[in-house]
Design a protein around this nucleic acid. Sequence first.
DNA 1: TATTGTTATACTCTATAACTATA
DNA 2: TATAGTTATAGAGTATAACAATA
Lengths: 150, 150
Amino acid sequence: MTKPPPDPSVDLGPLDSFIAFHLRMAQETALRAFITSSSQPDFRPGRFATLMIIRLNPGLSQIDVCRAIGRDKSTISPLITALEKEGLILRESSAKDRRSVTLKLTPAGEKALDALLPLVEGHDQRLDAIVGDAKPELIALLKKLTAGLS
Amino acid sequence: MTKPPPDPSVDLGPLDSFIAFHLRMAQETALRAFITSSSQPDFRPGRFATLMIIRLNPGLSQIDVCRAIGRDKSTISPLITALEKEGLILRESSAKDRRSVTLKLTPAGEKALDALLPLVEGHDQRLDAIVGDAKPELIALLKKLTAGLS
DNA sequence: TATTGTTATACTCTATAACTATA
DNA sequence: TATAGTTATAGAGTATAACAATA
C-alpha cells in the first residue's frame, strides 16, 4: 500500500505547535511530490544541487561542496565519482593543494543540468504558488533556522 | 569526520531561491540539533509523535496513526510492536472491526511520554527563539505546503 | 473486492572509522 | 597533527509486495 495522505482530523496536541514537526511533514511531502512529478528515476535533489553548485562555483573542491549542502565528505564521494563516470563533471587535482581536487562541469554536464532545470523550477513553482507572497519571508525564516542551529 | 556546518560563502544561484532546498536544509539541521541535544539514544522523533498521538486519541488504530504522521502502515508496524514490548502501549482488537486494533497508553507509557515532553519542548523552544513572532505564520505556511502537495 | 496489520525485503540517505596522501 | 578524499560498513527511515484475516 502507498503512504496515505496526512489526516488533519486526528488531534495532534502539542505536536501541532512544534515547528520541527511541521518542518518534517512539509519537507517529506515536498520531496515525495518532487520525485513523483519528475518521474526521472535517476534524478534526485542531491544530484541537481551538486551539479548546480559546481556550475556556479567552478574550481571548488569536494569539501567545499560538502559545506555548501551540509553533508559529510563520505556522502559526497560516491556521488562525485558517479557524476564523473557519467561524463558530467571533470576533476583535476588542485595545483595549490595536492590533497584536493577542483571540480567543474563538462559540456555534457552543462547540458544535463540545463535539461534538469525546468523540471526543478516547475516543482518549485508549485511550492511558490502555495505560499504566494509569503515566499521571501518563508525562505528567510528557513535560512534563519538553518543558520541558528548550526 | 563530522558533518561540516553550512557555508554561506558558496554561490547557490537558483538553489538559493528554491523553497524545497531551504526546507530540506532547515529540516535536516533541526533534526540533527535535536538528536544531539536530546542525547537519548533510544529516543527518536517518530517515537515521541506516535506516543503523543495515541495519548491524545486513545482508541485509534494503526492506520489512523499512519495517516496522522504520513507514513505507510509497514513503517509503523515494527514501532508499535516495540512500544508494546516495552510496556508503553496497549493493543486490543477492535470490537467493531476485527481487522484493526485500538491503541492506548499504559501508565508506564504516560510516564515515559511525560518524561520526554520537556526534552522536546526544550528543543522546539530553541526553534521558537530563532523565528520569534513569525512562528504562527511559519507554521501556517508549512501546513499549507503539506496540505497543498498531498 | 477492499482494508488492517505483519513480514520479508530492498532502497536511499546518511555518518563513523580507518586509511592514503598530502599539508 | 590536521585535512582532502576513498572505502568499508552500519544504521535510520522508508516503501513495495505478498500474505492472512476480516469486511
